[in-house]
Design a protein around this nucleic acid. Structure first.
Lengths: 183, 183
DNA sequence: CTAAACTTTCAGAAATTACTGAAACTTTAG
DNA sequence: CTAAAGTTTCAGTAATTTCTGAAAGTTTAG
């Protein structure tokens, strides 16, 4: 399995970006390869194409499965396992978002809640707790919003996008049009 | 400058989360300390409070300034520099978002654009380019959206939030109410 | 200009994270 | 059951990232 120059460029880039996206180089490369290669790939083919050890490949595949970005694909006559993307690009992007939220936001929200319950040990701590509360609320808003967008799906997101700077306007409009609605 | 247990917990946590958020432990700790401590802090005070070397502190402060998360604050009679947050929590959150976009999305968008211009070296590359295009468009949507939200400001974001699952509905409503509007 | 107060830089050390490859494990065909 | 085909684990090594502290640099008071 030799990669075309096009695929090689993309795979290398996703590898370099890997750590910024929450996984390591190898994992990024494997993901790119599986997504761009339409045929299902075996672990051995992946290891060969990327010139990485079989063990590392196994680790990478395991991690990608834990992120639910790839899934196994059983080919009838074959003994070995093959791998394919777990869904459309949109689905994959959502999974990455969600997984990162779990790792980057949720633990902090949880801690902030705990700290806000603690008895402040002095004057200053009251101000500190107010700040912590502010951070908590902001994270909560952002989280809720990203989930909202995920539920919309790609087409509606696109429509909404085309509103451009009009979102604020729609918002005002809504206040006038639906004054009685509670949600 | 000794930190209360409350502040210590928060600072330690932000340190641990640091690498997930795009900077290292020390940088995370320094940021938390500056944000939670209402009085301006000197580099030496920060180094002492966190028990880190003066050099490391200097690096960290430099990086936080490059992210525009803190700014220098000159105290009249004093010779040394003090540091304070560069704005409200909302402003800081936006800066982090934007900086991460620059590091995590922009380079990929740029590469994808380039690869889509390349002459495909075979049948399969045409399909690959279609995929790359799909990824590009998705990233573009998400980027544009996050910028949109940043422009809204925290209060409107909150109002929008309260719509909850109603955003989709408003969208439909808008189609009926503003059919002639082009944007 | 000089000295004191303070900051930054950077080479090397320490800590962390990723990768290899051999051994252990699992599954299935016969 | 056994052997073959395949996968996973993990101890040790390699690569990368972060931190320290001493030396070099900068600024200002006098």
């Amino acid at each position: 399995m030799n990669m075309s120059p096009l695929v090689t460029s993309a795979v290398m880039h996703f590898g370099e970006m890997g750590n910024r996206w929450g996984f390591n180089r190898t994992v990024g490369q494997i993901l790119a390869l599986i997504v761009l290669h339409e045929e299902p790939l075996s672990a051995q083919e992946i290891a060969d194409a990327l010139s990485i050890s079989r063990g590392n490949t196994s680790m990478g595949l395991k991690e990608l499965q834990s992120w639910q970005l790839i899934k196994q694909h059983h080919v009838p006559g074959e003994r070995k396992e093959f791998f394919v993307p777990a869904g459309t690009i949109w689905v994959l992007a959502n999974r990455v978002f969600e997984e990162r939220r779990k790792r980057e936001i949720d633990p902090t929200m949880s801690l902030l809640r705990d700290l806000m319950m603690d008895t402040p040990s002095g004057e200053k701590d009251i101000a500190v707790q107010a700040r912590l509360n502010e951070i908590h609320d902001l994270l909560e808003s952002v989280t809720a919003w990203s989930q909202e967008l995920q539920n919309l799906g790609p087409e509606k997101l696109d429509t909404l996008m085309k509103l451009g700077a009009g979102v604020g306007r729609i918002l005002e409009l809504k206040d006038k049009l639906l004054p009685a609605k509670s949600n």
